Every structure is written in structure tokens, then in C-alpha cells.
Simulated assay, not measured.
Amino acid sequence: MTTQQQPTTTLWRPTGPEELALVAASGWRAWPPRLPEQPIFYPVMNEDYAIRIARDWNVPASGIGYVTRFEVETEFLQRYPVQQAGGRTILELWVPAEELDEFNQHLVGRIQVVHEFR
């Protein structure tokens, strides 16, 4: 018996060392709950935008910035319209903090670190 794999969408997330440590503690399979001042989890739609945030925001804030890549079931993501947060390529998904557990259930495979900036 074979199982049919659902189509996935690749997303990226720029992150700092504290959040990445929590991802690692999950076995690289889940994003941690948001802090009270973080009502939205925002993965981004392209690698270049994630690099800019990690390099230009995370490094000055914490000395290091990471870009992660991960897959999510495409059908599940349809509930989150793509948000243009600036220019044409500044595209994000806005996942309400209270939906992050469900979002994590639709991750496929592991969260991977693909870039590191210091």
C-alpha cells in the first residue's frame, strides 16, 4: 500500500538564536509559541526576503541571524492569503499566534537552517 503525499509549499523564516534554539528543541519539527507581544507568526514566501531580514535585522539585534527553510502542506496554507508587506517581493503569510499549533501539524519534514549571518 502506498501513501499519496500532498503537495507542499516551501516557506522561509528569518530567526534569531533564541527562537532557533526552541526549534532545535522540538527536533526541528515545530515553531515555538509566540510571545504575548507577537500576535502573528510570519513565514516569508521567498529566500531573498528572508536573507535581508536575517542579515539586516537579526544580526544587529542579537549578533547572529539565521534563515530557515521548511515545507507546509499547500492545501492547508490556502487559508492564509499572501500579504505584501512592502515591495513586490516582500511577501509573507500572517498566521495568528493561536493557530500556530495547527500550522505546525501541517509541516512536512524538518525545519532546516540554510543561511547563517554574523
Rank of each mutant, 00 (worst) to 15 (best):
P17D: 10
E37R: 13
G87P: 03
R13G: 03
Q105W: 00
I53Y: 10
Y49P: 07
V108I: 15
I51Y: 01
V95R: 05
E73D: 14
L93F: 13
A30C: 01
V95H: 06
F76T: 08
E19Y: 01
W57M: 12
V95S: 05
A30W: 00
F76Q: 07
R110Y: 02
W31N: 10
F103M: 05
L20G: 01
M45D: 06
Q84Y: 00
I111M: 07
P96N: 07
H106I: 05
A50H: 05
T15A: 12
E47R: 15
T15P: 02
V108R: 15
I64K: 14
P32H: 08
L22A: 14
Q105Y: 00
P36C: 03
G86T: 04
P33S: 11
G87D: 12
L91H: 05
R69V: 05
L93I: 10
Y66H: 12
Y42C: 14
P32S: 04
V23D: 02
L20C: 02
A61E: 13
F76E: 05
W28C: 06
E71M: 08
G87N: 07
D56I: 01
R13C: 10
Y66W: 06
G65K: 08
P60I: 04
E98H: 15
T74E: 10
E18H: 13
V82F: 03
A30T: 04
I40K: 07
G16N: 07
E102G: 01
S62C: 13
Q105F: 00
Y80Q: 03
T15Y: 01
V67W: 11
D101S: 14
R52H: 12
Q83E: 13
R34G: 12
T68P: 02
E75S: 14
P96A: 11
P43Y: 10
I40Q: 08
F103H: 12
L100V: 15
F41M: 07
P17S: 13
N46F: 08
R29M: 08
P96L: 05
A85Q: 08
E37P: 00
G27T: 06
P36I: 01
E47K: 15
Q84E: 09
R55W: 04
E37V: 06
P39I: 05
V95F: 04
G27L: 02
P60V: 02
L22I: 00
T68Q: 04
W28T: 01
G65S: 09
R110G: 09
I111Y: 09
V82A: 03
P43M: 12
T15G: 04
L100Q: 14
I111H: 10
E99W: 00
V82W: 02
A24M: 07
S26M: 09
Q78N: 12
P60Q: 03
E92C: 11
P32R: 02
E99Q: 15
A50M: 09
H106C: 07
F70V: 08
L77F: 09
A30V: 03
V67M: 09
A85G: 03
V82P: 02
E19P: 00
L22N: 05
G63R: 06
